[in-house]
Amino acid sequence: MKNSSDYQLFSAYQKQLKTEKKIVLIWQCLLLIGFFSLWELSSRLYWIDPLLFSSPSRIINLVLERFANGTMWTHLQITMFETILGFIIGTLLGIVLAIMLWASERFSNIMDPYLVIMNAMPKVALGPIFIVALGPGYISIIAMGAIISIIITTLVVYSAFREIDPNYRKVLLSFGATKWQCFHKAVFPASLPVMISTLKVNVGLSWVGVIVGEFLVSKQGLGYLIVYGFQVFDFTLVMASLLLIAIIAAVMYKLVEQLEKWLIRHRIDS
């Protein structure tokens, strides 16, 4: 008797949760539809200048047209390629540098002031130097996508390495473990959640580096399309590129989130 009434309360609670979720979803859809409708409407009624602010229908048409004639796909591909590579290189180098700092206390002390400066430095300002050094092509852009996340990854991961409870090392040392064994049995796996959490931050940072890089190199990619559209006063093209960036960046973020979940479930250790 008592149990069944408990259960009723619980299902009522569950129902309430579901309703709340539905309300949130409805509002999200309304906001989206409302925004685009208002935009379309104001553009058609000349409340805003359609030349400057374009309109959703024009943007969609342009995207479809450019995909149909193949003048969008290459730009999209090249930007994605640069971003993914920049993201991977930046994250890996950041972790490798953190391992080096951990391996040698002295190296870490020597590097300390340089890391502080490099971290404080706005990395995209280095763009022109990359272009001079690596040429005005995708290599420079990838380098910018990478450099923007290296130092912050290094600092975050290194501090995670240092924060692990020294007693775990003590356990391993009592079995006669070497420094490297301590790293690979305790320090690395214990810091894995932190390393994984840097992934999500880094994928966003790489976008910044790559888009700025494409602005500067101005040859190919969605960043280039934005600059080009701006120069020829084709704001529909600018908006279309922004829309695509928003969609792909969100998809990448979600993918990294899935990867994160997968990695946490299959913690690398041996």
Binding site: N167, Y168, S174, G176, A186, L192, D269
Partner: peptide, 19 residues
Amino acid sequence: TSNQLTGYMLQQDYLFPWK
């Protein structure tokens, strides 16, 4: 050197949570 004859047990278990 690190003593192979000894076994160390700490105040807390320090079992590795991911193993």
